[in-house]
Amino acid sequence: MLRRALVCLIVLIGFSLSVTYSEEKMRLAILPFSNVSESTDFGWLSTGIPESLTFSLSSIHNISLVERIQLESILEEQELSLSDLADESSAVSVGNLSGADTLLVGSFQITGNRVLIALRFTDVSSGEVLTDKTLRIEGELEEIFTLYKNLSYGIIEKFQVQITPAEIVRLEDQSEITESLKAYEYFTLGKNQYYKESEEGYEEAAGYLQKAVAEDNEFGLAYAYLSLSYQKMALLRGQSGRGGYSEYVEKASEYIIPAREYGEGIAQVHKILAEVLYLKGDVIQAGRDVQKSLYLNPMDVETWLIKWRIKGKGNPEHPDLLRALSLDPESAEIHITLGKAYARKSFFPEALFHFTKAFDRDPRNIALHYGFAEVYQDMG
């Protein structure tokens, strides 16, 4: 407790940060980083760095982060590669489509056992590079999580983001997810596959995550994603009528235990366990985990959505769903969820309103197009 109090005091003095919430949020899109090293051995950091920064900053109320899935959808739709993002106009186009007001484009360079990370910010509305906000940090690869934490504080300071002592404590507590760089590499590669949202992707993710926990057998977050990957595979097998459902459910259950043991007190672990348990039908334990996750990080939009699925009974005006919307009014996922909920109650104008809002942010979302089709069919 004393350490946390000192951390809060030092950061508050060092950065001169307010402890109240602002009415205006910074909406930030963090794009994949460019590898400017001579070697491609650490290419996985292209997604590992933005993923970790997103993880760190997700607990800050006054920073709203564009979802990774939405960004990847935009990059695919615009047929843009990492090299294309070096062009300012292409990057700004991505920012506009994502609804961000600020764009973070970064790069990293590995030399020996040291890493240099550079961050460049662009104002999306003007297309102007914010030269006074540029950040650079260098250090040992083995200390990369400390570098991430310092970059997070740097972003907060540069943009004068108001932050509370509780948020500082959360940022400190989730700054390091593993002590093994190799485990972190496998974890990042696994997450890359997981985001493909396909049976093959989940299977590949599980393979990498198995390697991650082999490198660090106390890696709670990796165990949690292992459990979720197997549970998602089980659902897909069950929906298709193919075999393997029971086997994957059993594997998902197997990894809940080490995830809970080694991930205790990590908000994201409890969030993932809540989703796994909800999918398994254990709504009581799922409710406990989602509540604990929100206690640890009340600013996480996805956790409020999971809580709504567990307890909201499909009500589009349930406080949990409205809380998620208030935290991220531009989220395509939230508007799709609201659209579906209103459609089930035959409130078609409201459903179309939210589907249209989602379309503005993620026009290629398959679930969104199904939602539109079902509403128009039901309307006759």
Rank of each mutant, 00 (worst) to 15 (best):
L82V: 12
L28Q: 11
S58G: 11
F372E: 07
R361H: 03
T337F: 00
Q70F: 00
L228K: 12
Y342L: 10
Q160N: 12
S93L: 15
Q174K: 10
Y153T: 06
K357L: 13
D132M: 01
Q231Y: 00
V249Q: 12
D41I: 00
F159I: 06
L130G: 06
L85S: 09
W44K: 04
E247T: 13
V161Q: 07
D320E: 09
I272G: 05
Q285C: 01
L368D: 06
L235V: 12
K251C: 01
L12P: 01
E51L: 06
R170M: 12
A343Q: 09
D282H: 00
N35D: 09
T188L: 04
F187G: 11
G154M: 02
E140G: 13
D84K: 06
A100R: 12
Y342T: 06
L45N: 10
M299V: 09
H354I: 01
E330Y: 05
A286N: 10
R309N: 08
Y262F: 14
E142R: 13
S175R: 09
E138I: 05
I272H: 07
L71Q: 12
S331E: 06
R242Q: 11
A118D: 07
S56R: 13
G99D: 10
Y278I: 01
E79N: 14
S90L: 11
L71Y: 02
D173I: 00
R114Y: 05
K292D: 02
D362L: 00
L327I: 02
L53W: 03
L103T: 02
I13W: 11
L31D: 05
A324S: 11
L12G: 12
V19K: 09
Y148F: 15
S22E: 12
S56G: 08
F353L: 11
L221Y: 03
Q193Y: 11
D362Q: 02
L171W: 01
C8Y: 00
R120G: 01
D84I: 05
Y245E: 11
D378Q: 15
K307R: 13
Y184F: 14
D328N: 15
L279D: 06
R260P: 00
H270F: 03
Q160K: 15
G48L: 02
M26K: 07
V290P: 12
H354R: 07
Y186R: 04
G238K: 04
E143T: 07
S18H: 02
Y186N: 09
L226H: 04
P165K: 15
K292Y: 00
L279A: 09
A267Q: 11
S107R: 13
L82H: 07
